[in-house]
Simulated assay, not measured.
Amino acid sequence: MPGKDVFVTFPELQIDKPAAAARIVVAMSGGVDSSVAAMIAARSGAEVIGVTLQLYDHGEAAKRSGACCAGQDIYDAAQVCEKLGIAHYVLDYESRFREGVIERFADDYARGRTPVPCSLCNQGVKFTDLHAFARELQADALVTGHYVRRVVRNGKAELHKGRDPARDQSYFLYGTTPEQLDLLRFPIGELPKAEVRRQAAEGGLIVAAKPDSQDICFVPDGDYAGLVKRMRPETEAPGEIVDLGGKVVGSHRGIVHFTVGQRRGLEIGGSPEPLYVVRIEPDERRLVVGPKQALAVSEATVGAWNWLGEEQTEVEVKVRSLSRPVPARLEGGVIRFHQPEYGVAPGQAAVAYEGDRLLGGGWIEHTRSAIDAVATAA
């Protein structure tokens, strides 16, 4: 154990304080990523406190491999903390998670939107509430296992993409505030997944080979439509499928089974080209379909925008976690893409970057078809 005059020198932790005087809170989901983050924090010699949020307990979901923040995962987090010799606490946030994430998820589907529950979770219980908890404990840092990097430039903390592009999670963290980033640390952001697992195995952690959690962790069997139907039964009411001109071309078995851009499950015959869901009109229980080019979007209106970096007009924007950023102009809450962009739908997050640096983001409220924009200009 370092002496009281020894500073925490682990560059991943960015704490300029004697090790014996530093206190670190680690958010532990029970997976390998947060466990290795906790191991790095523990090896610094600081006082480390592991915290796991119990977010849901849906029967078999609590036992299911690949979930997070429930049953087996809480047990795994406790075992890792025991191995590391650090304290471990479990906080019951199930009601907050249900109201802020699960209910919102179901509402978005009922409104014909494409939800991003991971962003909701990070903006709510995982960052907002954990940040408050860490402050109450007078912690010097709140450590998580996200694949992102905290870079300090000119005395100001910035949020950057994870070094491994295949694992980067910055898209889901656009709602992070400057105050939260001052406390947050991401010790595995420079590492590829294989190295994280190697370090876990080398450290004797029981989660070294544990499967990764799923994107929608609170869905017991991966059947999100089943969950939404139970919570919002009106979403399984059948309705019409119409083309862009309003002509009825088929019927569907409930809007819950569809999102914008989807082709599978439409079962429309007689069309000379593949048709996709272009728009969902939940009040009329109607799907509007069209050819692929009808999915091209020229601009999107974004609400609840959060700037983490300086406000900018010319940016690069991602509208899906796995898409590449594309050039766009951002003015007055409207994103105008330099070239028509596909895969843009209400309910998704639009996240702005400057190179690897995350500038901010918000929720897509409305989109404008590139075809409509051309017709208006003509």
Rank of each mutant, 00 (worst) to 15 (best):
V51A: 09
A37E: 06
I24N: 15
G59P: 08
A19V: 00
R113D: 06
V51E: 06
Y75R: 03
R104I: 11
A77E: 04
I49M: 13
L91W: 03
D16R: 06
D57R: 03
Y93F: 12
L91N: 05
L13K: 01
A106R: 02
A70W: 08
A77R: 10
A61E: 04
G71M: 00
G31N: 01
G85D: 01
E12G: 12
A37W: 11
F10K: 13
S35Q: 02
L53W: 08
E103T: 15
A38K: 07
I40W: 10
Q14P: 01
G71N: 00
L55M: 11
L13V: 07
D76L: 00
A77K: 07
H58P: 00
F10V: 14
K17F: 09
M39P: 00
M39G: 01
K17H: 09
D76Y: 02
A21H: 05
G71R: 02
V26R: 04
Q79S: 13
A46P: 07
S95P: 00
A27T: 08
A22Q: 08
C69W: 05
Q72H: 01
Q72E: 03
R111V: 00
S29P: 08
E60I: 07
Q72S: 11
G85A: 09
V36Y: 05
G112A: 08
Y109D: 03
R23I: 04
A41M: 09
C68M: 15
A27I: 10
A106I: 04
A46E: 05
A61C: 06
